[in-house]
């Protein structure tokens, strides 16, 4: 997209303004709120990746927690077994690599199917990883999980610095940088011919095949890319959380990823990002105020499915078109 087009499209101006505002977030929020915001950003990356599969390819995976866990455990395992390589510039590519490998293996089995069979299969495979992470206590820490220390970045060491300080300083800007790159890359993917082909597959598989798109292979590519984004989100998440457990690969966690995406609206590119942010705050709010937080989250989900099927972003955008029509 050329500079001229960018200046014509108000969307990019809004993106730029939001980006500038995000630069000042650490000064505005308390450390607790900032940490929450960072959780939100990592899930936003997850949502971007997940939506390539759900919103653009039309495949609903109930097992994307597996790739999240793959990213997160790559970090934790390197911390445990290869401490000399424990620096962000190695950890990020490593987590991308391992989540890619896992999504190739699982994706190969899953993309032979669509619809409900695809969902159950993705779910079952993620539970396979869960079972492994849970049972191999000596390697993965089992149900206790693994602790994740602070990494180094380009030789910068954060020894002696406490986690909150690390999170509110360098790491926030690192996270913002990775998020912005992921955003631009995903934007590029969905508007590329490849992205259009995926949408054609979603809308009509038979027609897509007839015009020469190799449906199954493209689905696998989408699965791989989506797995990598989710793995990246998982890797970045570990540093905020400081601890990984096998639960990340449990299908209930995968369900939360689906929930976020729907909450924001999977028909809109930015939807999952908004959904991730709202979900992070909603979950924390519910957990902080009642021990029955699952009830609150579940009830919200049911209401959402029944009355706001296009998510928050969808509702806002349809409201916007209505207002526009009236003023015209």
């Amino acid at each position: 997209m050329g500079l001229k087009q960018i200046s014509k499209n108000p969307r990019w101006i809004i993106y730029l303004l939001i980006f500038i505002a995000l630069l000042f977030i650490p000064r505005m929020l308390s450390i607790h709120d900032l940490m929450l915001f960072e959780y939100g950003i990592t899930f936003a990356i997850v949502g971007l990746g997940f939506n390539l599969l759900l919103g653009y390819t039309g495949l609903l995976s109930f097992g994307h927690g597996a790739y999240f866990a793959a990213g997160a455990y790559s970090v934790a395992m390197i911390a445990k077994y290869l401490p000399q390589a424990y620096s962000l510039e190695i950890l990020i590519p490593a987590s991308l690599f391992f989540s890619l490998i896992l999504s190739i293996i699982f994706g190969f089995v899953c993309v032979r199917h669509t619809k409900i069979f695809f969902s159950i299969l993705a779910l079952s495979l993620s539970m396979l990883l869960f079972a492994l992470l849970f049972k191999l206590y000596h390697i993965t820490g089992g149900s206790d999980g693994l602790r994740v220390p602070l990494p180094t970045l380009f030789g910068m060491s954060f020894k002696g610095i406490r986690r909150p300080e690390f999170l509110s300083g360098t790491y926030y800007y690192f996270l913002l940088g990775v998020f912005s790159i992921s955003f631009l890359v995903m934007r590029g993917i969905v508007s590329s011919p490849f992205g259009k082909a995926l949408q054609a597959i979603r809308d009509n598989e038979v027609r897509a095949e007839l015009i020469g798109i190799r449906v199954r292979r493209y689905r696998l590519y989408a699965f791989m890319i989506s797995g990598m984004f989710v793995g990246l989100g998982g890797a970045l998440w570990t540093f905020v959380n400081g601890h990984v457990t096998a639960d990340l690969s449990h299908w209930v966690f995968s369900g939360e990823i689906v929930y976020m995406t729907l909450l924001g609206g999977f028909g809109i590119f930015e939807g999952p990002i908004i959904g991730a942010m709202i979900f992070t705050y909603l979950k924390l709010y519910a957990m902080g105020n009642t021990q029955y937080w699952m009830f609150v989250i579940g009830a919200t989900l049911i209401v959402l499915v029944l009355i706001l099927p296009n998510g928050v972003a969808g509702a806002v955008s349809s409201l916007w078109t209505k207002v526009k029509k009236k003023t015209n």
Binding site: M294, F295, G298, A299, L301, I302, V305
Partner: peptide
């Protein structure tokens, strides 16, 4: 799927 997932969370609590 999401509706039954919502019901699952609801029933657990």
């Amino acid at each position: 799927l999401l509706l039954t997932f919502g019901v699952l969370m609801l029933l657990e609590d």
